[in-house]
Measured scan of single mutants.
Amino acid sequence: TIDEIIKALEQAVKDNKPIQVGNYTVTSADEAEKLAKKLKKEY
């Protein structure tokens, strides 16, 4: 679900690790936030 994706992003940001979500690779908190907002609009 979208919530699980967002939790995974938040965890990756805390661990400061890049995370791959679908076609996106998120490497920073800023990118994670942008991706989360984008995904919320889509779903």
Rank of each mutant, 00 (worst) to 15 (best):
T1F: 12
I2Q: 01
I2S: 03
I2H: 05
D3I: 12
D3R: 10
D3W: 15
D3P: 09
E4L: 09
E4R: 06
I5N: 01
I5S: 00
I5E: 01
I6W: 03
I6A: 01
I6Q: 02
I6N: 01
I6T: 02
I6C: 09
K7T: 07
K7M: 12
K7Y: 06
K7I: 07
K7N: 05
K7C: 08
A8S: 07
A8I: 12
A8K: 08
L9V: 03
L9Y: 00
L9W: 00
L9Q: 01
L9S: 00
L9G: 02
L9C: 00
E10H: 06
E10P: 00
E10L: 12
E10Q: 10
Q11A: 08
Q11C: 04
Q11M: 10
Q11V: 06
A12H: 04
A12T: 04
A12F: 15
A12Q: 03
A12Y: 14
A12L: 09
A12I: 10
V13A: 14
V13K: 07
V13R: 05
V13N: 03
V13M: 14
V13P: 02
V13I: 14
V13H: 05
V13G: 05
V13D: 01
K14T: 07
K14M: 09
K14C: 09
K14Q: 08
K14F: 07
D15P: 01
D15S: 09
D15M: 09
D15G: 06
D15L: 08
D15A: 10
N16K: 09
N16P: 03
N16Y: 05
N16W: 13
N16D: 06
N16R: 08
K17W: 15
K17R: 13
K17L: 14
K17I: 13
P18F: 07
P18H: 05
P18T: 05
P18L: 07
P18Q: 05
P18M: 08
I19G: 04
I19R: 04
I19W: 01
I19E: 01
I19S: 03
Q20V: 14
Q20N: 11
Q20P: 02
Q20S: 13
Q20K: 13
Q20C: 13
Q20I: 14
V21L: 14
V21A: 02
V21F: 10
V21N: 04
V21D: 06
V21G: 04
V21I: 15
V21W: 06
G22L: 06
G22P: 10
G22E: 07
G22V: 02
G22C: 15
G22W: 04
N23R: 05
N23E: 15
Y24H: 14
Y24G: 10
Y24R: 14
Y24E: 13
Y24S: 11
T25S: 09
T25I: 15
T25N: 13
T25E: 15
T25H: 14
V26R: 00
V26M: 00
V26F: 03
V26W: 02
V26C: 15
V26P: 11
V26Y: 03
T27H: 12
T27C: 15
S28L: 03
S28A: 05
S28Y: 03
A29I: 08
A29T: 07
A29S: 10
D30H: 08
D30P: 03
D30V: 13
E31R: 00
E31W: 03
E31S: 02
E31T: 03
E31F: 04
A32Q: 01
A32T: 01
A32N: 00
A32R: 00
E33K: 12
E33I: 12
K34I: 10
K34D: 11
K34H: 10
K34A: 15
L35A: 01
A36Y: 12
A36F: 06
A36C: 13
A36E: 04
A36L: 15
K37Q: 14
K37E: 14
K37N: 14
K37S: 12
K38Q: 13
K38Y: 13
K38N: 05
K38G: 05
K38E: 13
K38H: 12
K38R: 13
K38M: 13
L39E: 02
L39D: 02
L39W: 00
L39N: 01
L39G: 01
K40F: 08
K40L: 14
K40N: 05
K40V: 07
K40T: 08
K40R: 13
K41T: 13
K41F: 11
K41Y: 11
K41R: 10
K41V: 11
K41C: 12
K41I: 12
E42A: 08
E42V: 07
E42L: 13
E42T: 04
E42F: 09
E42P: 02
Y43A: 13
Y43K: 09
Y43F: 13
